[in-house]
Amino acid sequence: MEECRFGPIPEAEFALEPFLADLGPDRPNWQQAVEPSTATLLDWYWLVFVAGGISLAGGAGVALRSRDRRALRAV
């Protein structure tokens, strides 16, 4: 195991002037947040509705087939 020792930190490292000098007198140049377009989101809704309809129809078909098979076994 190595032991690391650090010496005292000079007072100049804690001075505010170097940090404040970078700010300058003008306002920060922040980029505006860009919101995603709702049109692109709505373009994909048709795909979700089609997939949901296919799943619903497939599930109903499977349920009807299993019901018919049970009715045939009971006879």
Rank of each mutant, 00 (worst) to 15 (best):
G7T: 07
A33L: 10
V50T: 15
G61E: 00
L47W: 15
A12Y: 12
Y45R: 06
Q31Y: 14
L47C: 05
V62L: 13
W44Q: 15
E35V: 02
F49K: 02
N29Q: 15
V34P: 00
I54P: 00
D43F: 14
T38R: 01
R5E: 06
T38I: 11
E17L: 08
G24N: 03
G59D: 03
P25E: 06
V62R: 03
L20M: 11
F19C: 04
I9C: 03
W46R: 05
C4D: 04
L47H: 07
S37N: 05
A57E: 03
L56R: 02
G59T: 01
S37T: 02
P10Q: 08
V34Q: 10
E13C: 03
G7L: 08
D22G: 09
D22Y: 07
W46Y: 11
A60E: 01
A33W: 14
V34M: 06
Q32G: 05
L20H: 09
G61T: 00
F49P: 00
P8R: 10
F49E: 04
W30S: 03
G61K: 00
W46D: 03
W44E: 14
F19W: 06
S55H: 09
N29L: 14
A57T: 14
L56A: 09
V50G: 08
D22A: 13
N29S: 14
R67M: 03
T38D: 04
E3Q: 15
A15D: 13
R73E: 04
L47Y: 15
R27G: 07
R69G: 00
L42M: 11
P28I: 07
E35T: 00
L20C: 01
D22F: 08
L16E: 13
R65N: 02
T38F: 08
L23H: 02
P25H: 12
P8F: 08
P18E: 01
A74R: 03
T38L: 04
A15E: 07
V75N: 09
V75I: 06
L20A: 08
L41N: 01
W44I: 13
A39M: 04
L47A: 12
G53E: 02
R65L: 08
Q32D: 14
R5L: 15
